[in-house]
Amino acid sequence: MNGNSGMPRGDFIVSVILVVFSGWVIHMSLSMRRFGELGLAASPGLSPLVFAILLLVCGLILLRRSVAQRGYRMAWSGQKTAVFLRAVETRHFIVVLATIFIYYLFLGVVHFVMISAVYVFFTIWYFKGVVWWKNLLISTLSATIIWYSFDQVFLIPLP
């Protein structure tokens, strides 16, 4: 099992990203400002440099391993991409992410209880959790309870 994660292609892509990323960090950290007479030894770039080199080593190990398992052979086909895009998982993922993001954007604009209740209601509705009136009850109650206990009792700021 060791050294073989069973996903050489994923490893290959990640390792390339890692190598590029750590190279960029090495470049950045070498060009960071140096203070005092100690130069690099006390400069803000020292630790990023050291850890970027370690990351580079890990990236290269991963790269070497995935190349040995022929992870560079990418089998992109239009058909596969289409299947992926049309899959229910993908749609769900995008919907969940989009609702989270919309929720975030409205926080602070609309009152917390309202936007939270709407968010919970929508998500439960979309994933067909329960019948609508139970849903309404759950979403408003949970949003109100959270708002009350945070904002009113513990004085924790809410967005």
Binding site: Y119, I124, A143
Partner: peptide, 16 residues
């Protein structure tokens, strides 16, 4: 509790 009910509430708590 069904995940579809639980998870949105957890998200609200995460945000808060």
């Amino acid at each position: 509790i069904r995940k579809s009910i639980m998870m949105p509430i957890i998200l609200v708590l995460c945000m808060v």
